[in-house]
Amino acid sequence: MKKSQSIVSNMEKKKSFHFLITISWLLLLLVIWQGIVVGFHVSDWILPKPTSIAQQLYDMKDILWPNIWQTLQEVLLGLCLSILLGAAVAIIMDVVPIFHVLIRPLLVISQTVPIVAIAPLLIVWFGFGLLPKMLVVILICFFPITLNILEGFQTVDPNLLKLFKTMHAKKWQLYQKVKFPAVLPYFFSGLKIAVTYSVMGAIIGEWLGASEGLGVMLTRATKSFLTSQLFAIAAIIVGLTFILYTIVELLQRLVAPWIYRKGEKK
């Protein structure tokens, strides 16, 4: 018991140490950035100082939240639907092998067509509301989730499946007891990829037609050559993506903690 507590304590210390190194490294990069801009007298419209970006964020505080919330709605709704749709399609392809042959090429094709070519069509078909932005997010996030779940199904131990079948386990029991637990690491890997693309998908949708959102703010800042504002909005997008990624990691720790235990043992 004492040994396991000591291992856990050492792991927590190691994580804290890594976190401090990461924060220190990021702060050092910001200091170097500030020093270069100030030292070489670079104009803010070419490359703004980190302090100028921070000031811009403070100046925009009253208009930021409504735009962040608009983009966040598109991202969260699109992600949730991507997970449901991706899981459903992957399960159907696993249950009925012929669908694997029929649907897989369509999944690949969906990723070869540029989103910037599809997004205007979605605007034409569904208007300028929330739906076309959600669909852009779904088109971007659906593929990695579906593909990773399929990969997970293919790595399930066949001997374990045979054992459950000899015990007369039903189809849904095979999924509940064997396949779903085995697929979780792959599902979360796909979700981590999807969540990093989701914000970008919402931004692309807003570029092509919206009245509110971070994409709209980004477009206006670009057209007005407001470089400090452009960097400030980009920082919010990066921060939002990082928060979503961290939430997925926390969910993975809660739902499938054995994944991290295996990694820590290595």
Results as ranks from 00 to 15, higher is better:
residue 125 W to P: 01
residue 214 L to S: 07
residue 74 E to C: 01
residue 229 Q to D: 12
residue 28 L to C: 09
residue 226 L to Q: 15
residue 125 W to T: 03
residue 152 G to M: 09
residue 218 L to H: 03
residue 138 I to V: 15
residue 103 I to Y: 11
residue 50 P to I: 10
residue 105 P to K: 09
residue 187 F to Q: 04
residue 84 L to D: 00
residue 129 G to R: 03
residue 57 L to C: 10
residue 139 L to V: 00
residue 121 L to D: 02
residue 99 F to A: 14
residue 211 S to K: 12
residue 168 H to W: 00
residue 185 P to N: 08
residue 165 K to W: 05
residue 87 A to N: 05
residue 171 K to A: 08
residue 28 L to D: 03
residue 227 T to A: 10
residue 209 G to C: 09
residue 215 G to E: 09
residue 241 T to E: 10
residue 261 R to K: 10
residue 233 I to C: 07
residue 22 T to A: 14
residue 69 W to R: 06
residue 150 L to N: 00
residue 105 P to M: 10
residue 187 F to R: 04
residue 63 I to C: 01
residue 242 F to T: 15
residue 194 A to F: 02
residue 1 M to Q: 12
residue 250 L to N: 03
residue 154 Q to M: 07
residue 142 F to S: 00
residue 192 K to H: 07
residue 104 R to Y: 15
residue 154 Q to E: 13
residue 63 I to K: 09
residue 252 Q to S: 10
residue 204 I to P: 03
residue 260 Y to H: 15
residue 79 L to I: 07
residue 48 P to H: 06
residue 152 G to W: 06
residue 192 K to T: 06
residue 162 K to W: 06
residue 98 I to C: 03
residue 120 P to D: 03
residue 89 V to F: 08
residue 56 Q to R: 14
residue 149 I to G: 02
residue 84 L to G: 01
residue 183 V to C: 14
residue 220 R to F: 09
